[in-house]
């Protein structure tokens, strides 16, 4: 997938665990794990807003676009 969620990097930078972040933004660990492992098909604005607020970052810091490998 061309879009990659960089949640693992941000969690490492902020010294937060997935469980702590899930508690803070009020979504389940399972859902957050789906996001972290790049399995998510879509992200709600409310979730994005909560993530940006708790991680103190911009949406662009969370999501990275890379061109698909032609091979």
């Amino acid at each position: 997938m061309a879009l990659r969620v960089k949640l693992d990097h941000l969690l490492l930078d902020r010294r937060l665990t997935l469980t702590e972040l899930a508690d803070r933004i009020g979504i389940t660990i399972a859902n957050l794990s789906v996001l972290k492992t790049n399995k998510a098909r879509a992200i709600r604005f409310s979730t994005l807003e909560a993530l940006c607020r708790e991680l103190n970052c911009q949406p662009g810091d969370l999501v990275e676009w890379t061109p698909d490998d032609p091979a």
């Binding site: 979504i27 859902n31 957050l32 098909r41 879509a42 992200i43 709600r44």
Partner: peptide
């Protein structure tokens, strides 16, 4: 349903 389940 699948998309809904994978929407975070």
């Amino acid at each position: 349903d699948e998309e809904q389940s994978l929407t975070v």
